[in-house]
Design a protein around this nucleic acid. Structure first.
Lengths: 293, 293
DNA sequence: GCCATTCTCTGACTAAAGTCAGAGAATGGA
DNA sequence: TCCATTCTCTGACTTTAGTCAGAGAATGGC
């Protein structure tokens, strides 16, 4: 790790922490503890389950209960039973609560505006652009990968999105029946592996590895959600699958890909895959790659 | 104010606030309240006056005293009298205190590294670059301008730096004796104005306006410290002087400048100054500009 | 219908953070 | 030298934040 970079990150964090502190201080203007203000924010216009609130704010259930009692006593929140599960409870803002939420929103806006205000329009654009970039890469760092069954909800969601996407991108469209889609069993250890990438709980990518024989594996279904592209998700999925392959004693990985997926070709080349002769009769494949681990 | 930009800033702040929260939580690992940890940080290797600590952390004097008592009791800090003023007290870290400071520093490093770690080297560079840009513009927004006498310490400091700089940049060097330097009185209301720009208390730029006659003023000594360039300091100084000129009923502003100061020419042109015929016999001037307010 | 589990609430705490008034020491200028 | 001012400390608080154990209601699977 480059220590100059670490120092830059620290310097950045320090400065931004001051600004965040200013924001929270401004919230106190409304004469309510910060914990309650944060809770109003987190409940939001849509309301939220208590369980979700606890998770997102990291609160003890007793403490949350008390905070909600206080907000309820002030007429800002109502807590009711969940329709489908009587143990669950759901908090929603009353009309007065929504007014408060709006007031906090305006305080946030004011602080944001005060950062932009002294700058001219070119500087504002650059600041906002740089903030978007920081946000993007910080988010990228929060992407988490995990092995799981291709039958899981999130895996299915990724695969459906993947198939929908290639159907529009492949010149000849895509018909799953013509593609020898591996069964769930073939993508479950020890015959194969399936990786799901998640960002803040939402699935944003996937990838699979299918064992072909004792020494060979095949990479399939590497996909990244449009919202998460450019964050290196596919690269990390690939690394994770390669790690599994190594652990399983595989020596060679191969894959095939359609000519329309140019960004995939670039990724595979960069990761050390060499283009080789056709090894499959996949009607949608135009390129075949191989890598020795 | 562009509300889409405001929303981008809010979204950025929200994400970064989470990370800052993570940092502070990691400080708690060391089994010490956050207030004390922050205090250790703020005292730093050089020590600090209690007054400065109170200002920087926004603490009540009683509260600070108590925090210091606790740190002293744990052998991390020593508080002694200031040599020059017996009312003031100065806190310094003991050797153990410095060890603790180092430990907190490593926690900060670890969090910074955890942001970089999942990224590849190109992404890291972009993240760090964007952070530097955000930092730069946030700092730019904190630059504060004030009118004051050119005899003040900070004004002198700026002027000295300005003269040193032009002496190296002008082809023919610079001899103050040959330049009809306005007296302090000529740069003090109602005959003139002097603006100092400060960033976190440090002077980082200046500019002057001298009344020539009832309708005309002359801009002089517009300078920005090298550390603060690219932040629009000179532009803001100029605007401030123009505001003073308008308030004083001046109609025309003029200025002369040396051919070596190309960035100044660009600024003046952008701000609506037209190049005009020579109006002074300043031996260091090559260009003359004018603007009707 | 039974029972382990899940979810939330209450009571009884502790610790941290912050406030306020006033005392006492040191200073600086009249 | 005197006195208003500055700076810090102590005592006596309040509020906010957070923890823990246990009770009670609802659920889901058997």
């Amino acid at each position: 790790m480059d220590s100059a970079q670490v120092q830059r990150v620290r310097s950045f964090s320090r400065l931004v922490a001051q600004r965040i502190g200013a924001l929270e201080e401004s919230y106190l203007q409304r004469g309510r503890p910060l914990g309650e203000a944060r809770l109003i924010f987190e409940i939001g216009l849509d309301g939220a389950d208590l369980r979700a609130l606890r998770d997102r704010l990291g609160l003890d259930s007793g403490y949350l209960s008390r905070l909600l009692n206080s907000l309820t006593a002030h007429g800002l929140v109502e807590v009711g039973r969940d329709a489908s599960d009587g143990r669950l409870r759901r908090a929603v803002l009353t009309p007065n609560g929504r007014v408060e939420l709006g007031a906090y929103g305006r305080l946030s806006d004011a602080l944001a505006a005060s950062m932009l205000e002294p700058l001219d329009s070119r500087q504002r654009e650059r600041l906002v652009g740089a903030m978007a970039e920081v946000e993007r890469f910080l988010r990228a760092g929060r992407v988490e990968l995990s092995f799981e069954t291709p039958a899981s909800d999130d895996a299915r969601q990724c695969l459906d999105a993947y198939f929908r996407e290639i159907a529009t991108r492949f010149e000849a469209g895509f018909d799953p029946a013509q593609d020898r889609t591996p069964s769930d069993g073939e993508l479950t250890p020890p015959k194969g592996w399936f990786v799901v990438a998640r960002l803040e709980g939402e699935p944003v990518g996937c990838g699979a590895l299918k064992r072909v024989d004792d020494a060979t594996g095949e990479i399939k279904r590497v996909w990244t959600a449009p919202s998460a592209r450019g964050l290196g998700v596919a690269r990390r999925v690939l690394h994770k699958l390669e790690g599994a392959a190594r652990d399983a004693g595989l020596i060679t990985l191969r894959l095939d890909t359609n000519k329309a997926l140019t960004e995939a070709h670039a990724l595979y080349r960069k990761e050390g895959y060499r283009e080789v002769e056709r090894f499959s009769h996949n009607p949608y494949a135009h390129h075949w790659f191989e890598k020795r681990l």
